[in-house]
Each structure stands twice: as C-alpha cells, then as structure tokens.
C-alpha cells in the first residue's frame, strides 16, 4: 500500500510516498513478465531490455483503473482518493493529466480483466527494441501474443470488428506517454 494520506502530511512527504508507490508496482511488472509464455525463453539481456523500455507503459495500463474520469479523482494503492486539483498543487499535473486522458480512452473500450492482462503483455513485448540482441525472437513472441489477443477479443465480441484496431491504436499513445513523462523526477528520502 502507498501511504499517501491526511492533511497533516507535508507536500514533501506526499511526494516521497508517491515516488515510493512505483517500487512495488515495478516489481509486480517483472513478476508479470516472467509469467508471459515465452518471455523467459528470451535471453536475460533481452528480457531486461524489454522491461526497461516497457514497464512504464505497462504501469500506465495497470493504473488506468485508479483514475475516475468523471469525478477527476485518483485512488492510490492504499485506497485513499484525491481530487486531481489537490495532486496538481503538488506538481504532479502534467503526468496525471496525460494518465487521465489515456485512462478515459482505454476504459471506454470496456476490456475484461483477461483481455487487459493480455493487452499488457502485448504492450511489454512491443516496447522499444534498442539494445535487443535477438530481434527475431522478440518479434515472434509479439506476433503470438497479438494473435492471441485478437482471437480472445473476436471470440468474445464477434460483432465488434473495431475494438481490436482501436486497442492497437493505444500502443502509440503509450509510447508518447513514455517519451513525454518517464523523465519526471521522483524523490526518495535518504534516512
């Protein structure tokens, strides 16, 4: 849980807590990746490179359920909900605005949890390929996962032929989010 709470916390403490939120979330993405069929067949170097490139994007997908577009609130992992206005006052504005916009678009597609999980796997293996040693293996893995996602979605919604293309269009959105926001600064207190 992320201990963002109460009016008695200083801005600095809230920012430290916000920064700390990402640590367990990143570790969960690593564990998630290990469970993707075929991911651990890649070389360790390539696994690391994909995770470094793609984790931010996977987190954007994962966190989108924490954003309430109608209420303009964000729920942190400890269950505390904050209005965007409060968080913006702490300087988190541009990243959160982008996450809200992305969350609205993705949520409107109405994905089931298994579809969302498979989509996150596709996001991870579609990450930037700089530094990848075996491109062919990564491409094979990506193609297999995209085929599986297409199959899952079309079996469940045979009459909706637009959902899968709309979902794939979220991939460049995620790359843009990554390019614009992954250089945002976090602050961790040194005790």
């Amino acid at each position: 849980a992320c201990p963002v709470s109460g009016v008695d916390r200083t801005s600095q403490e809230i920012w430290e807590s916000f920064s700390q939120c990402f640590t367990p979330a990143v570790k969960e993405v690593v564990e998630f990746a290990k469970g993707i069929p075929g991911f651990q067949d890649l070389s360790q170097q390539d696994q690391v490179m994909l995770l470094k490139s793609g984790t931010f994007q996977v987190l954007m997908v994962r966190f989108c359920t924490l954003f309430n577009a109608e209420e303009r609130t964000v729920t942190f992992l400890n269950g505390q909900t904050y209005p965007l206005s409060t968080l913006r006052a702490l300087g988190m504005g541009s990243l959160l605005d982008a996450m809200f916009d992305f969350s609205e678009k993705l949520s409107s597609l109405g994905l089931e949890p298994d579809e969302m999980a498979l989509f996150m796997a596709v996001v991870l293996v579609s990450a930037d390929r700089s530094g990848i040693s075996n491109m062919w293996a990564v491409e094979q893995l990506q193609e297999g996962l995209i085929r599986a996602l297409r199959s899952l979605i079309s079996r469940r919604r045979p009459d909706d032929t637009t959902l899968f293309p709309k979902l794939l269009l979220r991939l460049p959105d995620l790359r843009t989010l990554n390019n614009l926001h992954s250089d945002k600064l976090l602050a961790f207190r040194i005790d």
Partner: peptide, 25 residues
C-alpha cells in the same frame, strides 16, 4: 533537513529491474 535521492521515473524503473535480475541470478 532531509536528504533526498532524486532520480527520473525511467531510472528508478531501470534500477529496480537490474536489482531484481541480479538478485535472482
């Protein structure tokens, strides 16, 4: 006064991943 280690979100993600793989080797 508190001392902070400041890093980008990208660097933080990278650090966690490197640590995890090193730990599991």
């Amino acid at each position: 006064p508190k001392t902070h280690r400041v890093m980008t979100l990208a660097d933080h993600i990278s650090h966690i991943i490197t640590q995890d793989f090193a730990r599991n080797q």
